[in-house]
Design a protein around this nucleic acid. Sequence first.
DNA 1: GCCAATAAGTGACCGCGGTCAATTTTGGAG
DNA 2: CTCCAAAATTGACCGCGGTCACTTATTGGC
Lengths: 194, 194
Amino acid sequence: MNKPVQQRTLKTRARLIDAANAVVAEAGFDALRVEQVVAGAGVAKGTFFAHFKDKDALMDLLIGARIDSYLDQIESAPTPRDVDDLIETLMPLLNFMTCERYVFDVILRLSGAAAVEQIGAIAMTFERHAQVVAKWLADGPFRTDVSPELLAEGVHAFSIQAMALKFCALHNSQTLTENLRPYLRAWLMPQPAS
Amino acid sequence: MNKPVQQRTLKTRARLIDAANAVVAEAGFDALRVEQVVAGAGVAKGTFFAHFKDKDALMDLLIGARIDSYLDQIESAPTPRDVDDLIETLMPLLNFMTCERYVFDVILRLSGAAAVEQIGAIAMTFERHAQVVAKWLADGPFRTDVSPELLAEGVHAFSIQAMALKFCALHNSQTLTENLRPYLRAWLMPQPAS
DNA sequence: GCCAATAAGTGACCGCGGTCAATTTTGGAG
DNA sequence: CTCCAAAATTGACCGCGGTCACTTATTGGC
């Protein structure tokens, strides 16, 4: 039984990821060029694509890792007591997801995997996000006529909506928080007329 | 005062759009190549970009026009009496928006204009969509504790969510309609526990 | 009808993501 | 140690969106 993966492979992969992180730190995600990454890692272009299916796969890794670290923070935060509390807890993540237009686009594009066998880091974080939020919503002072899972999916949908508005010239006069609050109030604590 | 736009310009533009529509009819939006469009129109590549800022601008026009025609149908439909009725009325539009993964991506990307002066066709249709739905929701048997405008934005957010799930391997076992129904029931007709 | 001034059109060229046949490196079998 | 098949790497090449200095057509003033 062969050692299935060589040491060299791991080293090259690490060099590519390090180089990519350096480029991102320097110039942001949108400015990342594959040629720059391979130059920084000291390998040929083809090597990059032997390690990553395409540029999106690298972005999935880089962005997914950061989302995951935000989720770590979120998971260790206390259960929010109301909508404002919930929003405040989510804000670091939402701010990261909208730090660049390009980042938001990549996240939307990769948040659903086309096939089960190619679920990426970002798609995983979305599952995790839903679970964390659902657990909160089951405990909190929110509506109980629908399942916490459905509520969490709604929080997700409205977060996407609010983030999209941030990039829209017609609606970006309000902050993300201000956009999100009325949605979540109406979603989580409805007061329908009798 | 000069005639600001020449006849030739309109003719070339029309030829480009015709050629683009022919390509789309033949092979779909995703397969459209600028080189194929200019070949079909009998002009040089540079001419294309004198008429459209980029390929997305052409897509905005083509896709926006189709969305608009679906909105015409929707607008002339009777006010929906319940959630299922609403979904059925919206379905032709939602089906078109998810006819190709590429089309959905373009719509998401162009649904918010980065600057007011460059609001495109798709962004316009989203405004129109919100107005049509808001008018319906004001009349129908739906919750009244929040404004019809906010309700309409929610319908939009959940529609996007349901469409995204259609492209997601983890959640595409249900149809778009089945995904959308529980969201809209919970959003438009909440029954919170007393 | 002629002549600038301006608008429209051209195509060679570039940037960058992605491919692949050829080459080098690796690690275990004999 | 030698050999070799699989794994890793290479870099020339391609596809395609987008640019721009230059050419060609149009139009209003004389």
